[in-house]
């Protein structure tokens, strides 16, 4: 198993946290992981992304040239990363916000109404969690849902933990969607 994943969206959509959660979940299952965020001026209001590698083997390079999985949470992200994807890759796009359709035919494409799922479960801000749950349904080899839930517990500091139950609910809705 070796996946080179790009998670991308608006700054504030929680793409960096989503990547971190995937890493921690997979790491606790004994896999090799790496995470590189976009940073600095890129982060202020514009598009943020992170590059995550999950592998059953030691990771040579954390740099991703051609992602095997892209999670696009907004339209600019999809347009930016779809052309760079590896053949036979998986593109997951957030159809709550992205009205354009992906164009490539040599990749598999799945859509998830991440914002709608998040709102339905009672939060306006957890589209990232819905997308993560959805991804793990499609690619269970990355990590189990249990590991993802545990990762949330590990990554979130004590004073922000009160949001965890609703985030878990949204992850699960994403998984079941």
């Amino acid at each position: 198993m070796h996946e080179e994943i790009v998670i991308s969206g608006f700054g504030g959509q929680g793409v960096l946290l989503a990547g971190k959660l995937l890493c921690i979940a997979a790491m606790r299952e004994g896999k090799f992981v790496s995470h590189i965020p976009s940073y600095g001026a890129e982060m202020r209001g514009g598009t943020a992304n992170c590059k995550v590698i999950i592998s059953s083997e030691e990771i040579s390079s954390p740099v991703i040239d051609q992602p095997t999985i892209v999670i696009a949470l907004n339209t600019p992200s999809m347009h930016k990363f779809e052309p760079r994807m590896a053949e036979k890759g998986l593109l997951v796009y957030n159809s709550s916000l992205i009205l354009d359709k992906p164009t490539r035919s040599d990749i598999s494409v799945e859509s998830v109404k991440a914002n709608d799922i998040s709102e339905a479960a009672g939060s306006l801000r957890a589209a990232n969690m819905a997308a993560l749950g959805f991804l793990l349904k499609l690619k269970p080899e990355i990590a189990s849902m249990k590991s993802l839930v545990d990762a949330l517990d590990e990554a979130i500091s004590a004073r922000n933990k009160m949001h965890n139950p609703i985030n878990v609910k949204i992850m699960e809705s994403g998984y079941q969607s």
Binding site: C23, H35, I36, P62
Partner: peptide, 10 residues
């Protein structure tokens, strides 16, 4: 370098 500083790994 910037990548090493920003990157997370176990």
């Amino acid at each position: 370098d910037g990548y090493l500083g920003q990157m997370s790994e176990p």
